[in-house]
Amino acid sequence: MAVDVQRYKTDVHNNWCPGCGDYGILNAIQMTLSQMELPPHRVALFSGIGCSAKTVHYVKTYGVHTLHGRVLPFATGAKLANPELTVIAVGGDGDGLGIGAGHFVHAGRRNVDLTYLIYDNGVYGLTKGQASPTLRLGVQTKSLPQPNVNQGVNPLLLALSAGYTFIARGYAFDIPHLIGVIRRAIEHKGSAFIDVLQPCPTYNDLLTKDWFGGLDRKDEQGRPVPRVYKLEEDGYDPYVRPGMGEDEIQEKQVRFLQKAMEWGDRIPIGVLWVNETVDTYEDRLEERIPSYRGARPALRPLADPKGRPLVDLTELFEELRVL
């Protein structure tokens, strides 16, 4: 029984370009929330800056459209202050892996229980198509005066080395599959990263919906041979579980590496990595600070009915006493 998906929609006019992959991701987010029956007021959606970041205005949950590259620190602060919230962060690849690359890495180190989707289209859309961090060396999308002079970063490999405990790839034009991936990411305890391939119809004339769908190559029956394929249909097992031996984990890492680097003729989507052996940051905090579980920082009562602080400084004064 899903909650009516309309409950997760706002009437804000959507001003993305027609045909933008962002629509698919937006729909997938709204449908995942409805299928998971997450009450809108229990969800906080954060975004960076760019086309993708406007997502929060189209979703009826608590929505915070932050700063370029900074979505993860904001989302992390909110989640740690109130771990009862379901926190989802979104942004583009320029936002998250360019100006926000440092935060991306450090969020992985923490493993706070949140989900981060990068709308990965290889270009800075809102500033009219400059090369973004995932665009590969030598590639020339249509706004570029010269082919890209930088190498592209592989978000999946970066996520693994940073310590994300859930790493997946989605495709903006396969919404049912993307819903499944987002759902698993939200359900995962820890930092979940989803790299969503999101064709930008206006500025990326190379990584198009047609290209991903293989319209340029047909089989004998004249049917396109899609480049994107699902890992789930390939028998791929992403799980690293407690008790697994070193060898087994190493084998998983090697397979992850193969899949994460596969590109061109075959591009895998699905869940590539789920590490269930790492505590969340919240777990680590609870271990250090027992009161963290019972008194969430955001919900801690601060004053008595007369407005006097609830804090009792007696013990602290005692610690500093000299007379």
């Binding site: 904001f74 992390t76 919230l85």
Partner: peptide, 10 residues
């Protein structure tokens, strides 16, 4: 930004 996120949360 973390502090602001926490402040938004309350």
């Amino acid at each position: 930004d973390l502090a602001i996120g926490a402040a938004i949360a309350g």
